[in-house]
Design a protein around this nucleic acid. Sequence first.
DNA 1: GATAGGGCTTCCTGCGGCTGGAAGGTCAAG
DNA 2: CTTGACCTTCCAGCCGCAGGAAGCCCTATC
Lengths: 132, 132
Amino acid sequence: MNIGEVAERSGLPAKTIRYYEEIGLVAPRRDPNGYRAFCEADLHRLAFLGRARALGFTIEDCRTLLALYADPGRASADVKRVAQEHLGRIDAKIAALEAMRETLTELVSSCAGDSRPDCPILRDLARTAEDA
Amino acid sequence: MNIGEVAERSGLPAKTIRYYEEIGLVAPRRDPNGYRAFCEADLHRLAFLGRARALGFTIEDCRTLLALYADPGRASADVKRVAQEHLGRIDAKIAALEAMRETLTELVSSCAGDSRPDCPILRDLARTAEDA
DNA sequence: GATAGGGCTTCCTGCGGCTGGAAGGTCAAG
DNA sequence: CTTGACCTTCCAGCCGCAGGAAGCCCTATC
């Protein structure tokens, strides 16, 4: 299998697959002409990576997860911990974004949005620390 | 005002302020010795930037917002549009993160998290496209 | 056998928004 | 005169790729 076919079957761009090889996440054989020659196991690994990345795991998380996946003596607790920590980071991000959303929603709804220059959004951004 | 004082009063790291100057968001005078000399208006501008960034606006959004702020002939509709588009991007991010959170929460809760290797998280990541 | 096209290769740059660190100038205090 | 805190510039790195240049390989067609 050349990179094009693997890209199509895994759903990952060829660029990304080359990058994953560069950072050691996958190690396909090489044909005599220098082309990467992927086997089914490589494809499976890449698909695994694609799904882990889609769930937001970092590349380093993926490295860990792949290692656990390959280790028959793993403890599911180790996998769970990785996922839980990731979940914590996601919750934190959501909370931060929701705080922004709340403020922004309020500002947007209070702005007339007409041709006049007066704007509570700008007023809020321009308020000084003294403006309690 | 030197950069240290401005950093403290604006809450922005000095590094960030230098960066903002580099990309043209602020343009302090210079003392004969080469030190940046900030005036109150510069500080105000930086505080504005700090608040806009805290609300998640991109640097380019900030540039636009600063320009609108400085323009007495602006239309509040222009400000509102910038904020609304930003709000849309935030909503999209939250939605993506919540989708991840949902899947991850389910996976985490279904994993025993003990010393045995069997793990539904890994099983899910490793499922093939055929596994419907 | 020449040519055209697609796919493959490597290498370098750039994205956003900073952050860290090195090497060196400047200033006030002791 | 030295110390130490400040300031300066410049360069590298973060994450996870994406874009593009330059060039090789392979197949098909004329």
